[in-house]
Nucleic acid binder design. Sequence first.
DNA 1: AAACTTAGTGTAAAATTTACACTTTGAAAA
DNA 2: TTTTCAAAGTGTAAATTTTACACTAAGTTT
Lengths: 248, 248
Amino acid sequence: MREKIKNQTNPNVSVDCVVFGFDGTDLKVLLVQRELRDNLNINDDTLVLPGDLINDNEDLDDAASRILTGLTGIRNIFLEQIGAFGHPQRLMKERDQVWLRAIRLEPSARVITVGYFALINIKNYKVKPAGFAKHILWHDYDTVNELGFDHKLILDTAIAKLRNKLYREPVGFQLLSKEFSINQLYTLYNEIMGGEIDRRNFRRRMLKTGFLKETDNFQEGVPHKPARLYTFVRKEFDNVSKNNFKFY
Amino acid sequence: MREKIKNQTNPNVSVDCVVFGFDGTDLKVLLVQRELRDNLNINDDTLVLPGDLINDNEDLDDAASRILTGLTGIRNIFLEQIGAFGHPQRLMKERDQVWLRAIRLEPSARVITVGYFALINIKNYKVKPAGFAKHILWHDYDTVNELGFDHKLILDTAIAKLRNKLYREPVGFQLLSKEFSINQLYTLYNEIMGGEIDRRNFRRRMLKTGFLKETDNFQEGVPHKPARLYTFVRKEFDNVSKNNFKFY
DNA sequence: AAACTTAGTGTAAAATTTACACTTTGAAAA
DNA sequence: TTTTCAAAGTGTAAATTTTACACTAAGTTT
């Protein structure tokens, strides 16, 4: 770091969260409408990721937690950083620039955002509007088109990281209830991977790992044979061989 | 993002680079001595990663490139973001706080740094002192102990990312000369992985991928049988099956 | 010519992956 | 109560990949 040049303006730094959820069938992502302020006559209902400026003296991770706690009330959410995104303001779309000026961020300063992704179980927690997000919705991941700022890029990066993570840790369990059937797990993984996983081989592989523990409970209220429910045992996962990778 | 709260101070944002090099035997990392300023009587020769504040209107990636070009003269360096690191200033060691105050960064503002890692071939480029790095050295990766700020954390994260990356892309070639022997490649990989790779199986696997092209050249000046040299053919890599991963 | 150092090579056993289709079970409908 | 429906649950054989493992070849130096 060199001596500070005085005619530079420090950037605003925000944290934006990609919150993935799973409703049993589709992968969802939590989006908010860019807040309209009554005293502004700009018309802007662009969808963006939930986020906020970081506070002084606040860890980046803590800022992400704060945002999610505000939206969901949950305290210990699975959270992982995606990275920093920082296009200079001049590269933004006009609409985004207007919006930034409207809320009077430090004049002329750019915004650098640190992306996080989180996984939560849709059914367990009701999301609720927060100060920085009056309109909030679960959006189908597959059909997200355009988002404000560079949030589409952040979202794309997030799904890549999530897939990647699935190769090393059983993160998928964060998206399911405590007890789940093998086929629910299968549906989730298949959805995340966007792919063609063989159902029978999937079951065998998962059971072989040893970190799924059979319970005595079964699905209820389904109009067909109810499936046995399992729980995830982290302790067992930690023993699983991690020699899973070939390098290039 | 909410309306800017006026008593907040925007953080300084810097970019720090973990530059890995390979000298044929050991993995190295480029470090600089925290710059001593003659007009300050603080005694500080702490080693840190090369870095700098980002400029207004400068992409984060561009800032990292700029730093590396300053140190090495190379323009197209393999570079990848590691992530953002942002402990509030209050969590820093006293020595780091003193240093920051000494160079008069925006008073009381914290520093958020975005880490990058780069791979370069030590032999091809002479590193040279730059404005922000008067003393610069290749340090053995294995024996790096403590660094200023949270740079040790950044370094640890970088090596993890590098290993990780090796599972999906043949990045190791960035660290070697254009033509190299299989055993040079082996030594490098073994060094990065910190591990026990079987030499024979390594050779077979690498050759089988098809992205190593045999040349008619051999090592020169070695006091033993000279090894055949190969080049890396990216086009072929792109055809290699990427179905290399098992998930959990 | 002998000694040294790294290059370069093969195989068989074990483990893993893959492809693939029918039976079972409970609920709902007829 | 029987039939129908929908998803649960199960097995195997062939192909592929991984693993473990030790000697010969070739060029340089002494």
